Amino acid sequence: MHYVATKICRTSEIGINGNLFGGTMLSWLDEAGAAYAGYLCRDPNIVTLKMEEVLFKRPVKISHHVRIYARVYTMGKSSITLDVEARRFDFDKELEESVCSTRMVYVKIDHQGNPTPIDPRLRENMDQSISDLMQRL
């Protein structure tokens, strides 16, 4: 997976049980995923189409650093599907633990908000990269 972003959990983002609000985490995942999709598509005009099931595995507490990673699952004509994962970083152990993960679909759009094709050369390069990765696994 590719490193995309780091967020730091603040007091204002904590719920009554002392954990990060789930909605805040979803926002972080969406923002990081969209930024990565825009980078891959070489275009900032990316919108979220769908977020699949999100599995919250561990709590995030005040001052935890959360690193967000993503990788391409598939790329269509105008859409890109990413696996996105958040990991909290333990400074003492120098260890990352998965906090939650999901699969997200983004669509490249034009200035009117209509889907627009991703450059075919980018899709071909991405397809080749995915194929190479699968062969190594």
Rank of each mutant, 00 (worst) to 15 (best):
T6S: 08
L26Y: 01
D92S: 09
F21H: 14
G22W: 01
G18C: 06
F91Y: 07
L49H: 08
N17F: 05
V105A: 02
G23Y: 05
T116V: 11
F56L: 06
S12Q: 14
S98E: 14
D90S: 13
K108E: 05
S63V: 06
T48R: 10
E97A: 10
A5P: 07
L49S: 08
L40H: 01
P44N: 06
T24N: 12
S101V: 09
R103V: 15
I80A: 07
T74N: 15
L95R: 13
R58Y: 08
R58I: 03
L29T: 09
P59L: 02
P115T: 13
F91C: 11
R10F: 12
P120F: 04
A35Y: 09
R58H: 13
A86Y: 03
I118W: 09
C100S: 12
P115Y: 07
G38K: 06
D119R: 13
S78I: 10
M51G: 08
G33A: 11
N45D: 08
F89D: 01
A86T: 06
S79L: 02
R103H: 05
H65W: 07
F89M: 03
G76E: 07
H64R: 06
Y36P: 05
A32Q: 03
W28K: 01
K57R: 14
G15D: 15
K61D: 04
R88V: 12
Y106I: 05
A35F: 10
G22Q: 02
P117V: 02
E96R: 01
I68P: 12
T6A: 10
L82F: 07
E85H: 03
I8R: 14
T48Q: 05
L95Q: 14
S101W: 00
V107D: 09
H64P: 03
C41N: 13
V107Y: 04
K7E: 15
E96H: 06
V47R: 03
V84Y: 02
F21T: 11
T6I: 05
D83L: 11
D119T: 11
L82P: 04
R71E: 15
L95W: 13
S101P: 01
F91S: 07
Q112H: 10
H111T: 04
N19H: 08
